[in-house]
């Protein structure tokens, strides 16, 4: 790291750290949905990235509609489109579960193939509807710009907003999973599906809503994503691999693990990207990850009980 003074290094770390936080937010939201779905029904949802894209396109659509019909509403539409992204992506997830995935529960490889097919269908639909070019919603004024913390450090406001959104969603998911009776049923089904049915839990209904919730959270991730990059038909695919990494590294059953691993992966990539090239940063992160998983195959945080 020659040529930088300590002050400069500090500023670089802080600023890359903050841009890493935006990446962390999107990865975490994606991974939360993926981990909930995988934990609940053992389905690896290859189309999860496309549900994120659904959220992003919903935001874009809202922005275009607002611009052409209610320009006065422009500063506020973004909040509404986050909620709408959740609803649209969640509804599509509900439908996908009902039409496709529930028929394949006992066949994990088939669900993998089916959701991959679904992701291809969705990608092509995006291309047909919105075109192959990347699009960006017009962001409201208050999301733009940066807050100059010191002479050398600028903190982007959109990053802070996305971080705040992620914290709210994560807390909401925690509340749902660990404090509500719905969450109790989800956790029971996750641990023993047959026995959950035998204590009176309608596991199929739980599955459907869990899948919808996971996809809805991906939709929120998509809305957040529009503030840091533009959306194209293949946007989802770019993030799905990193998201899988986060879930595996964190330990599929642990929400705390998901948070910790999203944070470390996002920060490692973002800070390394400054000093070495982007792909080298990825190689380096992957190598470290593989090493750690060799010693802790169940991920960072696996809970310990008698079975």
């Amino acid at each position: 790291m020659g040529g930088y003074s300590y002050g400069e290094l500090g500023a670089i770390f802080a600023m890359q750290g903050f841009s890493g936080i935006s990446l962390f937010s999107v990865l975490l939201l994606m991974a939360l949905g993926l981990a909930i779905i995988f934990g609940q029904m053992g389905v690896i949802n290859m189309a999860h990235g496309e549900f994120m894209a659904v959220g992003a396109y919903t935001t874009y659509l809202m922005s275009s509609l607002t611009e052409s019909f209610f320009p006065a509403f422009l500063p506020y539409y973004f909040i509404l489109s986050i909620a709408l992204a959740f609803i649209v992506a969640g509804a599509m997830g509900y439908l996908a579960e009902y039409v496709l995935i529930r028929h394949l529960y006992s066949r994990p490889l088939d669900t993998l193939l089916a959701t991959w097919g679904l992701s291809l269908i969705m990608q092509q639909s995006f291309r047909s509807i919105f075109g192959a070019r990347e699009v960006s919603p017009t962001l409201p004024e208050w999301l733009l710009g940066a807050y100059p913390a010191t002479d050398m450090i600028d903190i982007p406001i959109n990053g802070l907003f996305v971080l705040g959104l992620t914290i709210v969603v994560t807390l909401g998911v925690f509340y749902l999973m660990f404090k509500s009776s719905w969450g109790l049923r989800v956790r029971a089904t996750t641990q023993n599906r047959v026995m959950s049915g035998a204590v009176g839990i309608n596991t199929k209904k739980i599955d459907r809503f869990t899948f919808a919730l996971g996809c809805g959270i991906a939709g929120i991730a998509g809305a957040a994503f529009t503030t840091i990059a533009s959306t194209g038909p293949t946007t989802g695919t770019l993030y799905i691999v990193d998201t899988f990494m986060v879930v595996v590294f964190g330990g599929a059953a642990s929400l705390f693990g998901t948070i910790a691993s999203a944070f470390s992966i996002a920060q490692a990539q973002s800070i390394l990207e400054f000093f070495i090239s982007g792909s080298m940063a990825k190689v380096f992160t992957l190598l470290v990850l593989v090493l750690i998983l060799m010693f802790k195959p169940e991920g960072l945080f696996a809970s310990k009980v008698r079975r």
């Binding site: 009776s181 049923r185 956790r187 641990q191 047959v194 009176g200 839990i201 079975r307």
Partner: peptide, 19 residues
């Protein structure tokens, strides 16, 4: 037995209370 190993005792009992 087939209790839910990762739920607390109280939560285990509560899974039956939805009905």
């Amino acid at each position: 037995r087939m209790i839910f190993p990762n739920l607390t005792v109280q939560e285990n009992i509560e899974t039956g209370m939805g009905v």
